[in-house]
Write a protein that binds this DNA or RNA. Structure first.
Length: 509
RNA sequence: GCUCCGGUAGUCUAGUCCGGUUAAGGAUGAAGGCCUCUCGAGCCUUCGACCCGGGUUCAAAUCCCGGCCGGAGCACCA
């Protein structure tokens, strides 16, 4: 068999690497350019994973360019904050999505002004001073507001007034002309630039230097062309923005890039709302942005979810325009496949109780491999000595149901016992032999344990934020922060701290 | 309400463009078994889906029409 069909015996790859579908219209451009354009008003979370990973992967797949562009043009409602520029860069790097060039829109306002003025001059945009309700009424009736009819000179004059403070916040807005009879009222004569009183709400990067700020469709629309973006990959909430921006492109004689709109991404049982995450952190509901209950990249990182697992899952999902609800199980399964070969094994007993074994007169040494498939990595060993004929061990509280009197158990790599009783919070048992074979024959459950005399008090932080006290084995002294381990019969966890107390963040089973 | 988009197992996905090669494939999950001195990994088995109704056709998940359901947008947010 081995000789005839060696390939049949080879382990075949579990999951075939699913290639991304070809990028539409990739051959239309000399070089593919994609971008990720976050607002630095919060940390990144799984909701952005699609935009980041798809944009980056396609750029790489086509030997193109991936841009990072901070869209920090709202100093008021979605106010950017200095810390988030850096946290976003950090998250991207962690995800393995390094960008080729970086842009910050708040540094580019002068550029946007040039195009605003040009459109005003050419009668393709106008400065509207109507009350919002008045404008809305006119526009929904497919009628021009009074401002629209004014000559370019008037608008140029109003534009100057916007820039030099002649208009206050909310008193004037630049609108891009569109087809007034467009079926969707939302695209008709959309607003392009507005006034923000940065004296009151200064921008973290440019302070109060500017008072006229572009809106999303204007700055993003201009930049996509100006920076040579060929493929815009974003959520389907931007579908109507494409309609709006096409008018801008038409006015300027540009071709609109290829736009791909994917569906919204949810994760079961988790909120992915930036504003709610921010609020929760500010109010102390969450312990910072890496609180294990959150699906921020910071939190996933802290729990030991590997970026490759996220990437694999996102690539699997692709770019369909349907909304999807991801399951943690799928993510965990990807992560486990990555972790299992690398994570060394240790014992951790959660909320333990004492087990006293009598009848074992001599000292024992239990030897466990650091990894069952990799004996070359070495072993951990427990020295276990009886004290006046009794061996004292700690056993995980989860295993309490196994301790019914008369039950047989095997202590892994140590010996077999029979439970006598459980009283006063501790289990009493008697030594019945060391034979593993015997235990196997009797289908005796195998459990883990710790010497009561030597162990390390530890803390386990669970995904729901709860904390479980417990003890880990002495060998855990050598662990470093960030290391991934598998706590046998418990699950995978990341070492989050070694002092003052050894602390694990639970990843998954 | 208006303007769009979409509906394959619990979840994710392949197939839909160019109708038959598939008794609708894979992953995840659940249940069971084998193996393993972990409840992990590995191996095997089982469970489970084309939103509904018409039409076209020898043949429809795939094409057409209608309905139903779900989602997004309708900001001087991004």
């Amino acid at each position: 068999m081995e000789e005839t069909w060696p390939e049949l015996l080879e382990a075949k790859p579990k999951v075939e690497e699913r290639a991304l579908p070809p990028l539409p219209e990739a051959d239309k451009y000399p070089q593919v350019v994609t971008r990720f354009s976050p607002n630095p008003d919060c940390v990144l979370h799984m909701g952005s994973a699609r935009a980041i990973i798809l944009s980056w992967s396609y750029a790489r797949m086509y030997h193109g360019v991936f841009l990072l562009r901070f869209e920090d043009t709202d100093p008021h409602l979605k106010k950017p904050s200095l810390e988030f520029y850096d946290s976003i860069r950090e998250d991207l790097l962690w995800l393995g999505c390094k960008w080729d060039r970086e842009y910050i829109q708040s540094q580019r306002l002068g550029l946007y002004y040039i195009y605003a003025k040009k459109l005003l001059e050419e009668g393709k945009a106008y400065v509207c001073t109507c009350q919002p309700e008045v404008f809305r009424r006119k526009i929904s009736a497919r009628q021009p507001c009074p401002c629209r009819e004014q000559p370019p000179e008037t608008h140029l004059h109003r534009w100057e007034k916007m820039l030099d403070g002649g208009f206050g916040e909310g008193e004037a807005v630049v609108r891009v002309k569109t087809d007034l009879s467009h079926p969707n009222p939302a695209v008709r004569d959309w607003p392009a630039l507005r006034i923000v009183d940065t004296g009151k709400t200064p921008h973290p990067l440019v302070g109060d230097r500017y008072r006229v700020w572009p809106l999303y469709n204007f700055s993003s629309g201009l930049d996509d062309h100006l920076l040579g973006v060929t493929h815009v990959i974003r959520g389907k909430e931007h579908l109507t923005n494409e309609q709006r921006q096409r008018y801008l492109y038409h006015h300027l004689g540009w071709d609109y890039p290829t736009a791909i709109h994917y569906g919204r991404l949810k994760i079961e049982g988790v909120l992915l709302s930036k504003s709610k995450i921010k609020l929760g952190v500010e109010q102390g509901v969450y312990e910072g942005y890496s609180d294990p209950r959150l699906a921020t990249f910071a939190a996933l990182r802290r729990r030991g979810i590997k970026p490759q697992a996220i990437e694999e899952m996102i690539l699997e999902i692709g770019l369909k325009p349907v909304d999807i609800t991801l399951s943690w199980d799928t993510l965990y399964s990807h992560n486990r496949r990555i972790l299992d070969p690398v994570a060394n094994r240790y014992f951790f007993v959660a909320q333990p109780f004492l087990l006293e074994v009598s009848g074992a007169e001599k000292p024992f040494k239990a030897v466990h491999p650091l990894h069952p498939e990799h004996p070359e990595r070495g072993f951990r060993a427990f020295e276990i000595k009886p004290d006046k004929g009794v061996i004292r061990l700690l056993v995980s509280g989860n295993d309490r149901p196994l301790f019914t009197s008369g039950a047989y158990l095997r202590l892994k790599n140590l010996f077999n016992i029979q439970v006598k009783a459980f009283q006063e919070g501790k289990a009493l048992a008697s030594f019945t032999g060391t034979s593993h074979e015997e235990a196997q024959k009797g289908h005796v459950p195998i459990i883990h344990y710790l010497p009561a005399a030597s162990n390390i008090p530890s803390l386990m932080v669970m995904p729901d934020g709860s904390r479980i006290e417990g003890f880990s084995e002495e060998a855990c002294k050598g662990l470093k922060v960030g290391e991934m381990v598998q706590l046998e019969r418990w699950g995978f966890a990341r070492v989050d701290a070694v002092a003052p107390q050894l602390t694990f963040f639970y990843a998954h089973k």
